[in-house]
Design a protein around this nucleic acid. Structure first.
Length: 499
RNA sequence: GCGCCCAUCGUCUAUCGGUCAGGACACCAGGUUUUCAUCCUGGGAAGAGGAGUUCGACUCUCCUUGGGCGUGCCA
């Protein structure tokens, strides 16, 4: 048995990645198999090396080990898709030669127009315009360098019958399946192609992934068939949800593993809690280790209802683990977290100019060791530039989006960000910063703002801005629904798309 | 709009045709504790609705409703 987790290195390491990894690991290890980590960086515009590193670090921190991966190699290396383009090209060639796939020369403009014309109708997806091109002629155009993609040819009628381990047989009419792009015009494969090729080549026996992939399964099955490969078994796990039941997103919840690390959660508590969502032991046991989960794991006991990620219960479990530690061990954990020399060596120089007694140090630095800060809505609102609380909410949102886009998180980057923000918003830095200062430190005065954010780290800073937005909501200032939608458009016009 | 998936306390879940529908988080009450927290005890709290199958349905089937995902040269 071989399973894998295949995260895309775009943005912060997602808690959902850990959740999927956990079940893949538990299943593989229960059966004495291997668990593989593969990086799916086929989106050249969004993938970053920093994000890949963060994913590896986060998975390592949470304690789910992989047998093969980009950092340690393995019999099926490389484990980074951007290093496997030759393999995909070769496979795409086979598909076009057999007619299972075809070149498509449609422009982005035509596709956009097509989508517009389909709005509100029963139809969606590519209209098959290039599917009927003469293969020889199309091949000549492609060879001549005409920009094109390669699409998967879908049967025109009948239905696809697929098997999901947890749901049984699922039927989807073929005419509802899109002629998926397999090879982009930049020469990189899409997820669908790379994923199938790699899963086969890497000997993956069970594909355990999020439910969001269920509707693409027909395409994947068709690819296995076109290559004449034995398809693996598929297991679609329920998606983690926000309290409002929508797919877990950073809009309403912290989704970065780095946030949980910084906020003082223990990896074993996080794993335990994640395992509790969608899985239950036959004996009703709720506290368990990764090894115990793997030992007892029975994939057929996975439940299908989309579980709401409940921070309250996570906190409760984290508390149990924390309180159960021998004091000496707890002290080690606290040191691993933030109570170590190198952290204080950064903080002390920042606090020094503001000291009159040594007792001033810890209170001034306390915000660095907290999660949610306690301040009243008014404390924040009174710092709003021009006294406009609604505008302040938009400012906080803008800052969040801009922070997410930052390639580096250091003093210069943060300073540049706020200077840019001040310029675009036509504010003096002095007017702009006070509310951010309250949001980040919970007080109107203290350590320098940019240093405070750098010390706090990006994920916790982002979280603090979120808390500020929530505080504004309790103060009657909400940025959501239609207003948020309109503001998002305005933001994009002024700053470009969010990350 | 269309396709697919899902449906037990507020939340996470147990139950695989016969249970007073169990546990955990949260909440409420009481107790232990110099405070607080911990801890202990107790309490309220659920099978979305409607048909069917069956001696008997939370459990099987169908419909309705609700929720989710998908509908990208993103994964």
């Amino acid at each position: 048995m071989r399973t894998r987790v295949a995260p895309s290195p775009t943005g912060a390491p997602h808690i959902g990645t850990a959740y999927i990894a956990l079940f893949n690991y538990a299943f593989a290890k229960h059966h004495g198999g291997q668990f593989i980590l593969r990086i799916e960086d086929t989106d050249q515009t969004r993938s970053t090396a920093a994000s890949e590193q963060a994913i590896l670090d986060a998975l390592r921190w949470i304690g789910i080990p992989w047998d093969e991966g980009p950092d340690r190699g393995g019999a099926h290396a490389p484990y980074r898709q951007s290093a496997r383009t030759d393999i995909y090209l070769e496979h795409v060639r086979k598909l076009t030669e057999s007619g299972a796939a075809y070149p498509c020369f449609c422009t982005a403009a035509r596709l956009a127009e097509l989508r517009r014309s389909q709005a509100g109708t029963d139809n969606s997806g590519y209209d098959g315009c290039c599917a009927t091109l003469d293969p020889a002629q199309a091949a000549r155009r492609a060879a001549a360098g005409e920009p094109h993609v390669v699409r998967l040819r879908i049967p025109t009628d009948g239905e696809c019958v697929m098997q999901d381990r947890l749901r049984g047989a699922i039927r989807i009419p073929w005419h509802k399946v899109d002629h998926q792009v397999l090879l982009k015009s930049d020469g990189y494969p899409t997820y669908h192609l790379a994923n199938v090729v790699d899963d086969h080549l890497m000997g993956i026996s069970h594909v355990i992934r999020g439910e969001e992939w269920l509707s693409s399964l027909p395409k994947h099955l068709l690819l296995y068939q076109a290559f004449q490969w034995q398809a693996p078994e598929f297991v679609h796990l329920p998606l983690l949800r926000n309290p409002d039941k929508s797919k877990l997103s950073k809009r309403r919840n912290p989704t970065s593993i780095l946030y949980y690390q910084r906020a003082g959660f223990l990896p074993e508590a996080l794993i335990n809690y994640l395992g509790l969502l969608a899985y239950s032991f036959p004996d009703g046991r709720e506290e368990f280790t990764l090894a115990q989960l793997a030992e007892n794991f029975d994939i057929d006991r996975v439940s299908l209802g989309g579980p709401i990620f409940d921070l309250q219960k996570l906190r409760n479990f984290n508390g149990r683990y924390l309180r159960g530690l021998p004091p000496a061990e707890l002290w080690h954990r606290l040191q691993d977290w933030l109570l170590r020399d190198e952290v204080w060596q950064q903080i002390v120089p920042l606090a020094q100019p503001r000291l009159s007694q040594m007792t001033d140090l810890v209170p001034q630095a306390a915000f660095l060791f907290a999660d949610r800060l306690d301040y009243a809505p008014d404390q924040l609102i009174k710092t709003a530039p021009g006294g406009d609380a609604a505008a302040l909410a938009r400012l906080l949102k803008t800052a969040q989006w801009e922070m997410e886009k930052l390639p580096e998180w250091d003093n210069a980057a943060v300073r540049d960000l706020f200077n840019r923000l001040a310029t675009v918003e036509n504010l003096k830095l002095k007017q702009l910063m006070p509310p951010f200062y309250v949001a980040v430190t919970g007080a109107p005065v203290g350590l320098p703002a940019f240093d405070a954010m750098v010390q706090l780290g990006r994920d916790m800073t982002l979280r603090r801005l979120q808390y500020a937005l929530e505080t504004l909501e309790t103060g009657g200032v909400a940025l959501k629904g239609r207003q948020l939608k309109e503001f998002t458009a305005a933001y994009q016009a002024a700053y470009g798309s969010p990350a």
